[in-house]
Amino acid sequence: MSEIIETWFDQPLLFTISERHVRGRLVRLGPALNTIIAAHNYPPVAEKLLAEALALTVLLGSTLKDEGSQLTLQAQTGGGPIELLVCDYRGGELRGYLKFDAERLVGVGADPTLFALFGEGFLAITFDQAATGERYQGIVPLEGSSIGDAAEHYFEQSEQIPSLIKLAARHDAEAGCLAGGLLLQHLPEGEVGRDRLHVRHDHPEWEHAKTIAATLKDEELTDPATSLETLAWRLFHEDEVRVQPGVTVSRGCRCSIDYFAGVLSKFPEGERREMADDDGLVQVDCAFCSRVFPVSLGEIAAHD
């Protein structure tokens, strides 16, 4: 293990085990997560789902090479009470929200299956590459016991990268909502990028690392008294593990009146007037931060 630097909240820990051709990510979200969900009044079941999805978004987003690249995770219903889940990550900026049927959500119980939440829905994961302008998207069914299972299926089908994903979330009396996650991936010798990879799924080194990682408990992922370096050491102390802190995570809703004015300026002037109310304001509702932004026609015209 390299020098201990102690990573705790809102910053992923990147690690590699070169002898086993494995790379991994660990993250524990706390203050940033609570800032995101504070704008909404989610019931416990919805809060836990979104918290785990946000942890997954950070794990996947931390694999992006360029700061301006973006990872978007979207889960859409196939008839369940969760109608839409959207999270995205760009350069450490994280945001997400849920749209759901509150009455139907009550009926799924305290520990629902993924099918009970979404029905026969789907998960879409999109990588937008800033340097090349390319977009990679994979869509898979929402299968398995958790959204992490569905993401594993994505890597299996779309990327051909054997992966293990563990997610956990809970509410703490002092720290508020906590969420943690582990992403472990097997890469061929010498491969460190996110190109399409073809590897053997029965590789003994990968199976060994995967078996060990699977022993990680939910309470360890969300334990505020345990650093991420300590978790990595507990799991892989038999190997040489190289660790590196990732980009610090913060709430990243990019909404502002100026931003919306710029977007609305692309509409013809007649359509802008139709959107405006009697006071000459276009009311823009941001689902991410649960706020309404009144944008005047004058502010929109200033962007022409």
Score class of each variant (00 low, 15 high):
G119Y: 00
G181C: 02
P112M: 00
G80T: 03
G119N: 06
I165K: 05
A175E: 14
E83W: 01
G148M: 02
A175D: 14
K99N: 13
K99R: 11
E174S: 13
L167N: 08
A116R: 08
G181P: 13
V108Y: 01
A150I: 02
L85F: 00
L98G: 11
A102K: 14
G181I: 05
A130E: 15
E174M: 07
G96R: 09
A179K: 10
R95P: 08
Y97R: 13
T132N: 12
A168P: 14
V106K: 15
E156D: 14
I139E: 12
C177A: 12
G92S: 10
G138L: 02
A173M: 09
D101A: 04
G80H: 02
R104N: 09
F127D: 15
G144D: 11
G180V: 04
T132H: 11
G91H: 06
S163E: 08
G138I: 01
R104D: 08
G107H: 11
S163M: 09
T132V: 04
A151M: 05
A102V: 07
D172L: 01
A175H: 14
T77W: 00
L105T: 10
P162Y: 03
G91S: 11
R90D: 09
I82Y: 00
G181K: 04
G138C: 05
A173N: 11
F100S: 09
G148N: 07
G176H: 10
F127R: 15
G144E: 10
P141W: 00
L123Q: 08
G78P: 14
Y97W: 12
C177M: 13
R170Q: 11
E120M: 06
G96P: 15
R104S: 09
Y97D: 13
